[in-house]
Write a protein that binds this DNA or RNA. Sequence first.
DNA 1: ATATTAAAGGACAAAAATATCCTTTAATCT
DNA 2: AGATTAAAGGATATTTTTGTCCTTTAATAT
Lengths: 159, 159
Amino acid sequence: MSFNILYLHLDYTRRKMFSKACKYAINAMIYVATLPEGQERAGLKEISKAINSPEAFTAKILQELVRHDLFSSVKGPNGGFHIQGNPNKIFLSEIVEAIDGDMLFTGCALGLEKCSEDHPCPVHHKFLAIRDHLTGMLMTTSLRDVADRVNIGISFLKY
Amino acid sequence: MSFNILYLHLDYTRRKMFSKACKYAINAMIYVATLPEGQERAGLKEISKAINSPEAFTAKILQELVRHDLFSSVKGPNGGFHIQGNPNKIFLSEIVEAIDGDMLFTGCALGLEKCSEDHPCPVHHKFLAIRDHLTGMLMTTSLRDVADRVNIGISFLKY
DNA sequence: ATATTAAAGGACAAAAATATCCTTTAATCT
DNA sequence: AGATTAAAGGATATTTTTGTCCTTTAATAT
Ligand code: FES
Ligand code: FES
């Protein structure tokens, strides 16, 4: 019942960089990456509790991550999700791309059909640097990197 | 009818940095800033044609910009919207904040309630630099800057 | 004054994103 | 083999974002 909604049906004060789905995906993978050796698998309930996300919605996202070969899953007792591959070799960019797609990495800031040097929008030249900065960060930050920060207690997946 | 929708009701391959509303807002203000002296006012129809945006939706956004004192408007014949203030002193950050809010500038990348040094998410330290880069760019790029690029023909508002 | 013009505003509609519930499938345990 | 467990998947609901339409308000022109 915000001031905005009252007058204009627009309440954009919540726009973020990533979708919620994407954040849940990243957090879920980070959480599983933090698990100790020998028990590096977690179920939906455990994951969504750990990252404070709605269970059923998280289930959909985990399924999608399985389809993208980022997670693999096992059914039945002691089943759950574990990371497919080496967390040192899985980068945040892969998770973002799996869920939010690659428009953040390639799309035009001002909505032109496509971003190009030939026909640039008015912020193209300045936006490129930011886009590349973001892309570079995500492509060089591995799941292990961030999971370690959580394990040593300097970063958190929820509050 | 994408492959994604077929299987999971998730088709996030379009996530962008800014909302459509925000892009329309920026483009509309840039367009009006490109108008020659003596005729620096444009109507809804002219604007939405120039920036290739849906007219009625654009109307709502222009109203919002008026409420935020970025545009002022005049009704009746030869009415329309003109920039409130000096385009040299209006920065893209103000438009983004008016429409998308300030979460892009202040919010946590991974969805924590609030972004803070005390209780940072696992990408906080790396994300800060990107957020600041983006914020800095938007806070230092004036409407005049970008409008000039359009006027000299090196940038475009539509394709 | 009246007609015309264009923005403001309200109501509503469609699409996308977020979220829940329930059934089915497949793994494990007894 | 049968019971139990947990992911997969389908259907549906809610909220947010995007979009349209129509009436009202206010400015200008005749
Ligand atoms: S054309 Fe707009 S960001 Fe490249
Ligand atoms: S706490 Fe997540 S970006 Fe600062």
